[in-house]
Design a protein around this nucleic acid. Structure first.
Lengths: 137, 137
DNA sequence: TTATTAGTCTATTAAAATGGTAGGGAATAT
DNA sequence: ATATTCCCTACCATTTTAATAGACTAATAA
């Protein structure tokens, strides 16, 4: 399951996408609109900024904004950033690979199946963007 | 990511499948062969027994054994049992559904995408069995 | 220049989950 | 009867998660 952190990130990002025309949006506005603890949200937005997904502006008229258009922000990237690996086992993770302890990959059948799961998952997440998860009106 | 608990469960189950002919297998044997803490493994096997995947026998000559042939033990069931939901969001979980707080499912785009991820994942996990993850020799 | 606004940063905390341990108790075979 | 082996309950340490606090810095407007 995705952590609250990641879920909140999606909330915030879709809110920003839906309000792109308004220029920078206040953390507090997102916090109120999407019912997310203000301080927790601060951390999340900062993280998204540091990883190059968001831009920010301080002072009056400031706030956060998307740097790229929503269709260029992939879902897999967001999840990896805040939640870590998407794969179900470290030994089949593309971005967070770690050898399994006590397990010989060469003869491990789980490895094969979990790679397949990963590929199926990524087929969706890498080809869908923020644009695909905006609210439907 | 799957928890150690689930990973150990797969270790134990494949070991049991590979040694079905030997009759009941000692916890201690599995523990040694697959390098899993004995006491932790006890808990896991007990859980698998209670959910009807394993049988056991006490006393001399006792141990654990598979109740059904490996090809009838689905991977999704094992994961759900020890790790809970397979879906990435509570609101798209088939077996552990919960409404998301602060989110209107009807207009939520994430819901749609995450349902697709779930379906893709289950397509693999529900159609693969223990037999498919045995060691390849 | 000063007050205000708004993001930045570091640290802390409470609660839950994870991974593992301890030690009897109960059933069974010899 | 006794050795063997699983059963059961409780406990513990560590890590992760979710959230909070508060001081600091940068930008803007009066």
């Amino acid at each position: 399951m995705l952590s609250k952190k990641t879920q909140y990130a999606f909330h915030a990002l879709t809110y920003l996408a839906e309000n792109q025309d308004k220029g920078p949006v206040l953390i507090s506005e997102i916090s109120e609109e999407r019912k997310i603890s203000l301080k927790f949200l601060e951390n999340i937005l900062l993280e998204l900024k540091k990883s190059g997904i968001l831009g920010s502006k301080k002072g009056k008229g400031g706030g956060y904004y998307l740097i790229k258009p929503p269709e260029e922000i992939g879902l897999a990237k967001i999840i990896r950033l805040l939640d870590g690996p998407i794969a179900l086992l470290p030994c089949v993770s593309l971005n967070y690979y770690e050898r399994c302890e006590n397990c010989q990959e060469e003869i491990c059948g789980l490895n094969v199946v979990m790679s397949e799961v990963r590929d199926n998952t990524l087929k969706v997440l890498e080809n869908k963007s923020l644009k695909d998860v905006l609210r439907k009106h």
